[in-house]
Amino acid sequence: MTLDVIPIHVVPRHTGAALPGEPGLSGNAPPLLRELAEQVRHLLETGEPSAIDLSALPLTPADLDWLREKLGSGEIAVTLQAGGESTLDETACAGVWWVTHRNEQGAVASQFIEVAFVPELVKAHPADVAIGRERLEFMVSDL
């Protein structure tokens, strides 16, 4: 038996303040575009990355879909296998990344929009690179 058999209907929490004609939208998503614009400006001026924690905001699934659709998809999509799958997808706005962390059961653990040239999580750490070098040297010595 799969879980789908159990007839529980999950409904979004904020359905009250939907925009006219657009069910499920709370109106909380559009202001985030302004915040992103400010964060991108900050990135260009100072080089400092920033992020918006989507799970901390009152956004309905419809809001998230709207935001995702507005931002579009860019050229890079990173899949990370570390304690469950994570996806770090560049949006059509370069430097704006849609980051979803899933746990080992596949449930969304946290979700962010990151503003960075490259998300921190994608970069390899020097200590890990050093381990990689050791491994390569070992392979070379074995030739």
Binding site: D53, S55, A56, L80, A82, G83, S86, H101, A109, S110, F112, E120, L121, H125, A127, D128
Partner: peptide, 16 residues
């Protein structure tokens, strides 16, 4: 447990 797994865990914990 990789460094990235730990970073990811901390990001989720901070969010919670």
């Amino acid at each position: 447990v990789s460094r990235r797994t730990f970073l990811k865990y901390c990001a989720t914990l901070a969010s919670m």
